[in-house]
Amino acid sequence: MSTSTFRFDGTDIAFVPGQSVGAALVAAGRPSWRTTRHEGSPRGLFCGIGVCFDCLVTVDGFPNERACLVLAEAGQQVSTQEGSGHDR
């Protein structure tokens, strides 16, 4: 089993090819990676299958990607998203 890494807010997160960005973050012990628009509450993965949109991240500069759906790739730049991403 080989592992690679992507960048998440300046740190390297290891993943196994085939994992989603969200799965890799959870595996790395990070259950949250976003704060909500109104109350600034932490959010991470909830439904795990693309339904709830709680898990939004910015991937390689593109906001509003669902971390539970996007496949992790070596060298990817992932960053937390503040707010809902509505006001992109």
Partner: peptide
Amino acid sequence: WDLPGVYTAGALQALLKGGGVAA
């Protein structure tokens, strides 16, 4: 229920089946 670490049952399953990850 909006705290990180609270998941749908399906999410726990999806993490395991699709990513081999225990939440």
